[in-house]
Design a protein around this nucleic acid. Structure first.
Length: 497
RNA sequence: GGCCUUAUCGUCUAUCGGUUAGGACACAUCCUUCUCAAGGAUGGAAGCGGAGUUCGACUCUCCGUAAGGUCACCA
């Protein structure tokens, strides 16, 4: 109900959204989700998605941030139609290269008498602020508006002069009708004394010039919206539709997730071996839900299902419990070839495994990939498996612990007897009995049942893997083959004698 | 302190006045099993509190409470 109007607008005019990060470090999940929503909205309506860099605070700028931002978005599969690297009809897309433009609009406001130079020092401002705090009221510069401001020569800051103090009401596509009284309006800085515009001014000019129709942003901007609206009014322009995303909270759920609170760099998830599809799916669902019981969505699903009115308003905790599960779901959707290639890549990356020549064995490896896949939910789990010694036994004969070869209440004599039986059986079995784990199982299982499965199967499996935890003995024999399996079993017999 | 918001299982959420309040993750138990994982089955688990409105409220209104945001020459 609350969005009938905005939905109609979306259909009539071309949707233009933007993501406008400032290059002050890495991208965390909160940043990325905002980008994702803006991108989804643009894609859903065949609109335009713009990437714009808001680098107006030179002090906070962190080198390499731009590359990091581009890399993060690309990894996720969020591609932009206009941006700093590819240009576009409204280039440049880096605010520090648009200073003349802001100056032009600033002068326009000065001419209208809606902006004035201000040379109040930081110390003076601090005094004002402190006073306001003591009086327990919000600090407003307009209460201290100088009577005879100097002429603006670029060395002072330039302040907006609030044209009229009134209550502003606007419709947020997510939160519905919002409003704030005159106390939200102030003479804020348009251009800083260093010549750079503030976010508050620059983003408005850019959004107008770039034709942005929907502004996706975090709720920290709600409080300053009346300021923006008063500027749009002063410029004689129509503001865009605001769509406010809910906050993402940190662990415990009582604090907005920010870089200082341990928010993680999205590229960390690349290192941990999560799929970009997973991340997109997960982030989309953190604060938005199409309704219904489906949870696993592809990129295309998300684009077609996305809608602003299904967006959540309350904050969501970022907990990655569900991430592993979701990643596995997306891994299941991959083609087997791609999946195997990826597993192989991670094996090669691991120094403990990459040394094995058998990694290139084209008969052996296809048998191993599915087993590995069964046991992981993200690629880095492969490293965990290697670390736990759960992989090397495919490539080399294990070290055997004599004590562990014997099942619970078994004895050495019987264990040796069983192992010899298995060796014998395998050696006499025709080749086609090694074509699947099930075929091997049929050779051994009845004997195991008669003599106590644990008594037979445990030593067999242990002889093959040397590990208390490993796939079942039939699978191991299948993977290792007749020759290697019998050799390892014989080695176990030798160890016991 | 002013202003603006938010509030359903531990977590992410469904419900748009009438449901035994649904699902997923996580957890527990059982089955399958020599072990681990996977798989199957089952289970525990929620409407912040208080007033209204209504035949009926998780849903609407108000008051509390708690939480978040904001009050920068940061975005």
């Amino acid at each position: 109900m609350r969005n009938n109007m905005t939905e109609n607008t979306e259909k009539k005019q071309k949707v233009v959204t933007r993501f406008a990060p400032s290059p002050t470090g890495f991208m965390h999940v909160g940043n990325v989700r905002t980008a994702l929503y803006a991108w989804l909205l643009a894609r859903k309506y065949n609109g335009t998605f713009i990437l714009r860099i808001e680098d107006t605070d030179k002090k906070r700028e962190v080198e390499g941030s731009l590359e990091h931002i581009l890399k993060s978005l690309k990894w996720l599969g969020i591609e932009w139609d206009e941006g700093p690297d590819i240009g576009g009809p409204n280039a440049p897309y880096i605010q520090s290269q648009r200073l003349d433009i802001y100056k032009k609009y600033a002068n326009n406001l000065i001419e209208k008498g809606l902006a004035y130079a201000d040379d109040t020092t930081e110390e003076e401002l601090d005094v004002f602020r402190k006073k306001a705090e003591e009086d327990k009221i919000a600090f407003l510069f307009r209460d201290h508006r100088p009577e005879n401001p100097p002429t603006w020569d670029g060395s002072q800051s330039l302040r907006f002069k609030v044209p009229k103090l009134k209550r502003y009401t606007w419709t947020d596509a997510v939160w519905g009708e919002l409003s704030a009284g005159p106390e939200a309006l102030d003479d804020f800085i348009l251009i800083k004394s260093d010549g750079y515009p503030t976010y508050n001014f620059a983003h408005i000019i850019d959004d107008i010039l770039m034709g942005v129709t929907h502004v996706m942003r975090g709720q920290e901007f709600i409080a300053s919206t009346p300021k923006y609206l008063s500027v749009y009014e002063a410029l004689g322009m129509t503001p865009p539709i605001y769509a406010t995303t809910p906050p993402i909270m940190g662990e415990g759920g009582n604090k907005k997730l920010g870089k200082r609170d341990g928010a993680k760099d999205v590229l960390e998830y690349v290192k941990e071996g999560y799929l970009p599809e997973t991340m997109m799916n997960f982030l989309a669902l953190l604060g938005w839900n199409p309704g219904g019981e489906k949870e696993v969505f592809t990129k295309d699903d998300l684009i077609s299902l996305f809608s602003l009115e299904k967006m959540q308003r309350s904050g969501a905790q970022f907990g990655d419990d569900k991430l592993d599960w979701l990643n596995k779901e997306h891994m299941k959707m991959m083609s087997e070839d791609v999946r195997n290639a990826e597993i192989h890549k991670w094996l090669l990356k691991n120094p403990e495994i990459s040394k094995f020549e058998k990694l290139n064995d084209e008969k052996l490896m296809p048998k191993i990939y599915p087993i590995i896949f069964d046991h992981i939910s993200k690629w880095s789990d492969i490293d965990t498996m290697v670390g736990a010694g759960e992989l090397s036994y495919y490539f080399q004969s294990p070290q055997l612990d004599k004590e562990k070869l014997v099942w619970k209440d078994g004895n050495i004599t019987d264990t040796v007897k069983h192992l010899k039986w298995v060796i014998d059986t395998l050696q006499n079995a025709p080749e086609n009995n090694f074509s699947s784990p099930d075929a091997i199982k049929s050779l051994i299982f009845d004997y195991a049942t008669e003599n106590g499965r644990g008594q037979v199967l445990w030593p067999t499996r242990f002889a093959l893997s040397g590990k208390e935890k490993s796939p079942d003995p039939f699978t191991l024999i299948y993977i290792l083959g007749k020759e290697e399996s019998t050799a390892r079993l014989a080695n176990a017999v030798k160890t016991l004698s």
